[in-house]
């Protein structure tokens, strides 16, 4: 237990250091981006005086390192600043807070769909190795891995919304307003994000299961006469999940990439679409805050995955 707490402390400390380094990187990348926010906000006919005043008000006339320090100072105080152009004057933390539930809902929805379907598909493929079902899962995986998610999004809209009329083509009801509404309107976007992930996950699980079946402890379990279902769950699946969860954790960043694109396509008012809109409006502060939010999400998910791995694999906590 003590070892586990020490491990937890190390990991959280590491995550905080990574957020700090990531925040600096985000700031510097945005500084290197072309375009002057003052020009963008004030328009082509702004006077020299109004530009200078704008730059002074937003500390844009200070050296870069001073700007970085000022930004970090306010961010660390929990203040992400104000939107400059997209939602001029609105508090960014508030904007992100409003949109977070939709993004979190969509991400978790997609992840659950991908996990459940890959557990089923991967298990079926491994148990039916070399037979028709295995070949069908392989085919699905190849198609799923090679399809871009935005293209799949449009295909799903075409099939289920425009042709069959079962689900809405555009728009999203945030889970705060109606959970059922969110489940229904979120299904197509979640499917578009989940399909490529499910394809990768089911391949990984299949390989992991087939490797585990060959292990000596499975033969030993069979020599004890345990029934096959018991052996599959407690010996094969249980041990195959350890590498599976590790790799799933590494794929979470692709999940977020999918969220950004898919939110735009389906008009989901989440952090992904906020980030894209802000980038088009040269609203640097908002883009920075969104990138920082994604960084915190990725690190949190990785931390959770690592802890799940430790719980699954007793060899790791010692």
């Amino acid at each position: 237990m003590l070892q586990f707490l020490r491990y937890l402390g190390q990991r959280v400390g590491g995550a905080i250091a990574t957020v700090f380094a990531g925040a600096i990187a985000v700031f510097l990348i945005m500084k290197a981006a072309p375009g002057d926010p003052a020009m963008f906000v004030l328009g082509d006919f702004a006077t020299q005086q109004s530009i200078a005043a704008f730059r002074a008000r937003h500390s844009l006339d200070q050296p870069v390192l001073t700007q970085l320090w000022l930004w970090l100072e306010t961010v660390l105080a929990g203040n992400l600043g104000e939107s400059v152009s997209l939602y001029a004057g609105r508090d960014i933390a508030q904007l992100i807070g409003q949109r977070m539930p939709s993004t979190a809902f969509l991400g978790i929805y997609a992840l659950l769909l991908a996990l459940v379907s890959s557990l089923v598909l991967g298990t079926v493929a491994a148990l039916q190795r070399g037979r028709t079902a295995d070949a069908a899962v392989t085919l699905f995986a190849v198609v799923g891995i090679s399809m871009p998610d935005f293209w799949l999004g449009y295909v799903l809209v075409l099939a289920f919304a425009l042709t069959l009329g079962w689900l809405p083509a555009y728009g999203f009801t945030p889970p705060g307003e109606s959970l059922t509404g969110a489940l229904v309107t979120g299904l197509l976007p979640a499917l578009a994000i989940a399909a490529p992930l499910a394809a990768v996950f089911s391949r990984i699980l299949r390989v992991s299961l087939l490797e585990t079946v060959e292990r000596d402890y499975v033969t030993a379990a069979r020599s004890m006469g345990y029934n096959e279902a018991f052996i599959f769950i407690n010996y094969v699946l249980r041990n195959a999940l350890i590498p599976f969860v590790t790799i799933v954790g590494l794929q979470v960043r692709y999940l977020l990439g999918g969220v950004v694109v898919i939110e735009r396509i389906f008009g989901v008012p989440g952090i992904g679409s906020l980030m894209v809109d802000a980038a088009f409006a040269r609203d640097y502060a908002v883009v920075q805050a969104c990138a920082l939010t994604f960084l915190v999400i990725v690190l949190t998910v990785n931390l959770i995955v690592d802890l799940v791995c430790v719980l699954l694999d007793p060899r790791r906590s010692h």
Binding site: D216, T219, A221, R222, S223, M224, G225, Y226, N234, N239
Partner: peptide, 25 residues
């Protein structure tokens, strides 16, 4: 046959570490 194993017949393996489920005590 499965019902005979672990009751009337059993096996001891060469690698004792590998014969135990690593995820269980």
């Amino acid at each position: 046959f499965r019902a005979l194993r672990g009751r009337r017949m059993a096996m001891v393996f060469q690698d004792p570490v590998g014969a135990f489920n690593p995820a269980k005590t």
